[in-house]
C-alpha cells in the first residue's frame, strides 16, 4: 500500500532525469515522507516548487550547466593542450621548412639586410604556442590563459604584416585565428578543473606525448622523403609512422576515465573541425581563381570558421548525450514496476 502523499511525491520526482531518479528517488521519497506532517495528504507548495525547480535544473540545466561540470572542465584542459600543440606544430613545421630552405638556397632577404625576416612571424607563432603548451603542462592555468591571449595577438600580427602583400593572407590563415580563439576559450573553461597532466595520468600522458612526437617527426619527414621505403611493399614507412602515432594517441586516451575521455573527444571534434573548415573555405571560394577578397568571401569565411566547429561539437555532443542516456534508459525499466 502506498500513501497518497508518496504517490504525489513520486509524480513530482518524475520530472528528474532517469539517471538522477535511479540514484536518489527512493532516498528522496524517504526524506520527503520523513519531513511530512502527520496526516498530510498533499505536498506543500514550497516543497513541490523546490522539487520542480530541482528536477528542471537537473534536466534542462544539464545542457548549459553540464559544460561547467568537472568532467567537461578536465576535458577542456586536454583539448586546449591539443589545440596549442597543433598551433605550435603548424608554425614550427613552417619554421623548420623555412630554415632548411635558407640553409640550402640562402636567405632571400639577406641582400636587403633583413636576416631571417621572412621567418619572424612563424618563429614568433611557434614560440608563443610552445609557451602555452609548457604553461598547460606545468598546470600554470592563469599564465596559460594569459600566454594564449598573447599568442592570439601574435597570430593577428602575423596576418597583418603579410596582408599588404598577400590579399588572401587573412583568408588563408583563418584557421589559425579560429583555432587560437577556440584554444583560449577551452583554457578559460578548464581553469577551475584538473590540470591536463593529472587528467591524462602518467602513462596516458607518456603515450600521448610519444604519439605526438612520432606524428611530428613523420610530418617533418614527409616533405624530404620523396620515396620512403615500403613495408612489405604495401605501406610507406611514413604512413606506418603516422598510423603508429595515431594508435599511441588512442591508447593514451583509453587510459582516461570514460566520462572525461568522451568529453575530450567531443571537444577535439571541434578542434579538428577548424582545419577542415579551412579546407572547405578554400574550396568554396576557389582562392586560385578569386581576384580579390569580396565582402561575400569574408561572410563565408566567418560562417564556415564558426559554423563548422560548432556543428562538429553539436553532433559529437549529441552522440555523447545519446550514449550516456541510452545506458540510463535501459536500467530504468526494472525501477518503474515496484514503485506505485
Amino acid at each position: 500500500m502506498t500513501a497518497p502523499l508518496e504517490v504525489h511525491y513520486r509524480r513530482l520526482l518524475a520530472i528528474y532525469p532517469a539517471a538522477h531518479r535511479r540514484a536518489y528517488e527512493e532516498e528522496m521519497v524517504g526524506v520527503l515522507m520523513a519531513g511530512a506532517e502527520p496526516g498530510q495528504r498533499r505536498p506543500a507548495l514550497g516543497e513541490a516548487a523546490d522539487l520542480l525547480w530541482g528536477g528542471l535544473r537537473a534536466r534542462l540545466g544539464r545542457g548549459a550547466q553540464s559544460l561547467r561540470t568537472s568532467a567537461w572542465r578536465d576535458a577542456a584542459a586536454v583539448a586546449a593542450l591539443f589545440g596549442a600543440v597543433l598551433l605550435a606544430a603548424a608554425a614550427g613545421r613552417r619554421l623548420i621548412v623555412g630554415l632548411t630552405y635558407f640553409r640550402e638556397y640562402d636567405d632571400p632577404m639577406r641582400f636587403l639586410g633583413i636576416d631571417g625576416g621572412l621567418l619572424i612571424d612563424v618563429a614568433a607563432r611557434t614560440v608563443a604556442w610552445l609557451a602555452v603548451v609548457v604553461a598547460v603542462l606545468l598546470a600554470a592555468r592563469r599564465t596559460a590563459v594569459a600566454l594564449a591571449g598573447m599568442a592570439v595577438l601574435v597570430e593577428i600580427a602575423a596576418i597583418a604584416v603579410w596582408q599588404p602583400s598577400q590579399e588572401f593572407r587573412a583568408v588563408r590563415m583563418s584557421w589559425a585565428l579560429a583555432l587560437a580563439l577556440l584554444t583560449v576559450a577551452l583554457l578559460v573553461l578548464s581553469r577551475p578543473g584538473r590540470p591536463a597532466r593529472a587528467t591524462l595520468g602518467r602513462r596516458g600522458g607518456t603515450l600521448i606525448t610519444a604519439g605526438l612526437a612520432l606524428a611530428a617527426v613523420s610530418a617533418l619527414l614527409l616533405p624530404w622523403w620523396p620515396a620512403p621505403p615500403q613495408i612489405l611493399g604495401l605501406l610507406p614507412v611514413t604512413d606506418a609512422m603516422l598510423l603508429a602515432a595515431g594508435a599511441m594517441l588512442l591508447a593514451g586516451l583509453q587510459r582516461i576515465p570514460a566520462g572525461t575521455r568522451r568529453r575530450i573527444l567531443v571537444l577535439l571534434a571541434a578542434v579538428v573541425a577548424v582545419p577542415i573548415a579551412q579546407r572547405l573555405l578554400e574550396q568554396a571560394i576557389g582562392i586560385p581563381l578569386a581576384r580579390s577578397v569580396t565582402p561575400g568571401i569574408v561572410v563565408v569565411d566567418v560562417l564556415l570558421m564558426v559554423g563548422v566547429p560548432l556543428l562538429a561539437f553539436a553532433l559529437a555532443a549529441a552522440v555523447l548525450h545519446l550514449r550516456e542516456t541510452v545506458r540510463v534508459t535501459v536500467s530504468r525499466v526494472p525501477e518503474e514496476s515496484p514503485s506505485v
Binding site: Y24, V31, G54, A58
Partner: peptide, 25 residues
C-alpha cells in the same frame, strides 16, 4: 539525508530549512 536537513536547521537556529530538491542537488 533527513538528518542533514535537521542538523542544518539546528545549526542555523531554524533559519535554513533545506528542502529535498535543494538538498539532493
Amino acid at each position: 539525508g533527513y538528518a542533514v536537513i535537521e542538523d542544518v536547521a539546528r545549526m542555523t537556529d531554524g533559519r535554513v530549512r533545506l528542502r529535498a530538491g535543494t538538498l539532493y542537488a
